[in-house]
Amino acid sequence: MIINKKTMITKRKNPFLTYYYPNSLLADQFQTIQTNINFLMSEKMTQTIMVTSPEEGDGKSTLLANIAVAIAQQKKKVLLIDSNLRAPALHEFFYTSNTHGLTDVLSGRMTLSEVVHHTEIWRLDLLSSGSIPKNPVELLGSKIMKELLVKVKESYDVIILDSTALIKLPDTKLLASLCDGVLLVVKNGKTKLQSASEAKKMLEFAKARLLGVVLNQ
């Protein structure tokens, strides 16, 4: 399924178009994606959503942040998890510290309540990645990560995870199998058809459910 056929998103310096410019055309596009996600969530049991792309540089982090804002504006409690343990970016969007985060929870050093950030956007919380570990694959594939995703479902309506690119690293394939669904972001003029096809096959091999594809421009 392709969400809204080919939904066109343009990058801007300010990542939160849906919050600061709610009446803009681009904010409308994010709202359209949010509406489609809501439909999928009501149709099937979809609460944890991973957003990934075939390769780096496809704009997935900006896109998922705006989707999270759009969902929060619909009076749903949202948790953003930066599970990109190699090149995390979400803490920069929210101007928060990344000293502690997901890696501390997965290693047992801290609890979720100690590291989660309550952002300026009502109902939207952020779990940043924390310090970059030496063993990201081991942490993301751990029993604790699986238990964490089950636990946060009790407190949040929607959990959205940022991840590494799909093709070159094993991290995302492990994580995809733990989530209820996956959104694949491809970039117009950059992502090759072969890469997109390979990414789709990898998700199928991981037995992940592909919710849709978003074309980013």
Rank of each mutant, 00 (worst) to 15 (best):
F30R: 14
L203M: 07
R12K: 15
Q31H: 11
L85C: 11
L106Q: 03
Q194K: 15
V150S: 08
L40H: 02
H91N: 13
E154P: 06
S128A: 13
G141T: 05
H91Y: 12
L25T: 07
N36E: 12
L102T: 02
A27C: 11
Q194N: 13
Y95I: 08
M50F: 01
S177D: 04
H118I: 14
P22H: 07
A196N: 06
E120H: 13
Y156F: 09
I33Y: 02
N216P: 05
A27L: 11
A199R: 15
D180A: 02
M50L: 12
L140C: 09
N23F: 07
S129H: 08
R86V: 11
S197R: 14
P15F: 03
Q31T: 13
H91L: 09
L193G: 11
S113E: 10
K143T: 13
G130Q: 02
L193K: 15
W122P: 14
T96M: 10
A196T: 12
R12M: 12
V116L: 05
S107W: 13
Q217R: 14
Q217A: 11
M110P: 05
L178K: 08
L211A: 07
D157P: 11
T99Y: 05
M202K: 14
H100P: 00
N38T: 06
S195Q: 12
L161E: 01
T35L: 09
V69C: 02
K190I: 09
E43A: 14
P54K: 06
I167W: 02
N38D: 06
Q31M: 06
S83A: 15
A176Q: 11
T164G: 12
E120K: 14
L139Q: 04
I159V: 15
S113M: 08
Q217N: 14
S97G: 13
G57A: 14
Y19L: 15
L184W: 03
L17F: 00
F16W: 00
V214L: 13
F205E: 09
K11C: 02
N38P: 00
F16T: 08
L161A: 02
T7W: 08
I144R: 10
M202S: 15
I159S: 07
K13F: 06
L127Y: 01
L210F: 02
V185G: 02
T119M: 10
I49A: 00
I132N: 04
D162W: 00
G130E: 01
